Computed example of a mutant assay.
Amino acid sequence: MSAEIFTRFVAYLAIFLFGLIVMRHGLFQLAQAKLQMLLTQLTNSAWKGMLAGILITALLQSSSAVMVMLVGLVAARLIPFTHTIGVILGANIGTTVTAELITFQIGSHALWVLLAGVLLLLFRQQVCYSIGCLFVGLACLFLSMSGLSSLAEPVSTLTVARELFDWAASHSAYGAILGATLAAVVQSSTACIAIAMGFLAEKSMALPTAIAIMIGSNIGTCLTALLASIGSGSSARKVAYANIWLNVLGALLFLPFINGLAWFSMMLTSDPSTQLAHASVIFNVACSLLLLPLVRPFSLFVGALHGRST
């Protein structure tokens, strides 16, 4: 029984990740000519860099993809390291769009969206192909979310899962460690949030625990940029280190206030999944706005720890 549950869980997670990749591909095809232009031209100030980070991450549906782009641009000396901090702050906000998107109740229409996407893929026009990818990706997201929600109750009855959830619920730091570990494995903070949403919907997990997992997942997903920076030079590596430090500092700042964040999110909506999505937005917006005025000293801090800024 546990093997069957695990197999289904992996299958639904794979469908979710596939949906993210396909949707990102479609969006990227629609806007690829202007993405690097935005990064190279709109990063000369922190606030413009943050706006660019929000927009590009919302389009690509992946903060990790934006981080990898930044590492490449810095390695190629197209932008300096100090201009990337604002983009990183914006990317953390932009990545919350997907979590908000999957809370919409259109799961019953997912098959029709999938069919429309497949039909659009048959056309040769670039726009039709891109929109087809977008529809197929969205359909996969909603279908996998339905599957993950259906598995929440049987998974929570397993002894190992119950002990793990109890451990994560015993302290917010443990929940963050669980989220960071899971995100490092699946390489998607959005997938971690989607899993937590499934358990929230079935009342198998408390909202504060889910928020701690969400905060930790922001740290775990930093591994992608760190791996991409290997062999790319000291300035490019500082982009990855800055991403890690920003998320670690944000986590340390908010972990003591998780119960307050959960209470505020519950005041906004009664739906558990939407509560977590709203908490993700509030957390990332608050962290980015708090750190935005400190971009210069923060870049000096990263440079002092990981090599002189260039």
Rank of each mutant, 00 (worst) to 15 (best):
F81I: 08
T274N: 03
L111M: 11
R237N: 03
F301T: 04
P272R: 04
Y241G: 07
S265T: 02
A52R: 02
S270A: 14
I211Q: 11
M145Q: 09
S189E: 10
L55F: 14
V66K: 13
E163K: 05
F298T: 06
A184D: 03
K48C: 12
I79A: 03
V68L: 08
A14Q: 07
L246F: 09
T224I: 04
L268E: 03
F123C: 07
T269D: 09
Y241H: 12
F135D: 03
M69C: 11
A212Q: 09
Q41R: 15
L164P: 02
T310W: 14
T221F: 04
L178I: 00
A277F: 07
A3G: 12
L27S: 14
M214A: 12
M197H: 10
G49D: 02
L291S: 02
A173Y: 13
G49R: 04
L30R: 09
L261K: 00
S188N: 13
A31T: 14
Q105D: 15
F135K: 11
G137Q: 01
G132T: 15
F104W: 04
A139K: 06
H278S: 09
V74F: 00
T57E: 03
A91F: 06
T181L: 11
T224R: 13
M37F: 05
L143D: 05
V160Q: 07
G198P: 02
A210N: 05
G49A: 01
A168D: 12
L291V: 01
